[in-house]
Design a protein around this nucleic acid. Structure first.
Lengths: 207, 207
DNA sequence: ATAAAGTATTACGTAACGTGAGAGTCAATA
DNA sequence: TATTGACTCTCACGTTACGTAATACTTTAT
């Protein structure tokens, strides 16, 4: 069998076969007069073994040792690899927990900002809400609405990092969480809903 | 602060700082007349950020974007990274399950072999060696020799996967490694050498 | 002043291929 | 038979995040 045939059969690239040949991991049974690689059935079996160990995350160097050395302790190799994988997983878990905490903190900060009675921000909030209340009868994707929303977005941005996605989610909360809704609607009937829509439009448009 | 000082402070190598400078991830505040890197407090803060994202598994390229572009959507980047990590973990889990299954199967096979009486295992070896000793005067490619060798090959295969190549290599070792040679030749003068030849013939013939 | 310690700049090595580039080969068609 | 399209071959650079010399200059300590 020629390279392409073998490659397609097991689902790898021709380059990979070239590479395996190059590093002596899997040399074709013979090479034709014109320099083409010819793989045998036996080569295919070896390849299966190689791919099996590859699936288990073994580096090619180890695989080569395992394949070539009949005395190599496969069992022990498997156990060593198993431990390595467990270690890698716990590292990954740590990273995942860290990143989740970070995301949560960011969300909490945004929520806290919105809810906080900090005088400093309260006025800005009020100004923006009032400004928005004035245009709430316009469509959410109107020039005026979006301009007002942008002011809101830029203001929040000064407080901390967050994404347009988070901004959009914040809008959702305005409607879903009655504590927000009530607070905001004091500035105008249906303002929360209006803000949610405009924030969504703004976020989507600036993605 | 100079490189070593910074490096020790955050627990990275000098080379790493050189590298970060080289790829423009963290350039020192200034460079002295003699070409020494001088890091500022601000540099240290940036470095902390860099290391934080590195802990989360971000590639340096992304970190550079995040650090250099204040408008870069950090939140979204975190979410994307989070998804990537989850994917990597599920891949790892799959690998771990596979390797555990493999180990279990091997253990079961060994247990099955032992269950039939640990003596039987040793006896099989002895029987095969004695059997081979009887035909060692025949040519290595004779019917009888190859039949005996095949029994040997099939028996080994029951205990673990043996490629024909590995089988052949094992034969080489019988001659090259005196520990084997000695042990085997107890069953007959020159048996190791005979086995090596017969195993090579068997392996080549069944390729 | 001299030695020890620190720093700087190349530059190769690593893992496992991906991706051309340039050239030869094989089979089928005009 | 000549051409063409489909394959194959061998370079050889690019990728990631530094580790590890090798060589040379600077600063610090004695």
């Amino acid at each position: 069998m020629k390279v392409r045939e073998v490659a397609d059969l097991v689902g790898i690239s021709v380059r990979t076969l070239h590479y395996y040949d190059e590093i002596g991991l899997l040399k074709p049974e013979k090479i034709t007069a014109s320099g083409y690689r010819e793989y045998s059935e036996k080569n295919l079996e070896t390849l299966q073994q190689i791919l099996f160990f590859k699936e288990l995350g073994f580096p090619l160097k180890r695989i080569k040792e395992i394949i070539n050395n009949p005395l190599f302790d496969r069992q022990k190799a498997l156990e060593v690899q198993h431990k390595m994988l467990l270690n890698r997983r716990s590292q990954l878990d740590k990273m995942i927990r860290t990143i989740e905490k970070t995301i949560d903190k960011a969300n909490a900060r945004i929520a806290a900002l919105s809810k906080s009675g900090q005088e400093e921000f309260a006025e800005k909030f009020k100004a923006i809400y009032e400004n928005l209340a004035k245009v709430r009868h316009l469509p959410a994707d109107s020039e005026e609405a979006l301009a007002a929303i942008e002011e809101w977005y830029l203001f929040l941005n000064k407080m901390g990092d967050y994404s347009l996605e988070a901004f959009k989610n914040l809008g959702e909360m305005y409607v879903d969480d009655p504590r927000f809704t009530e607070n905001i609607d004091k500035f105008g009937e249906g303002l929360a809903k209006f803000m949610r829509d405009a924030m969504a439009v703004y976020a989507d448009r600036n993605k």
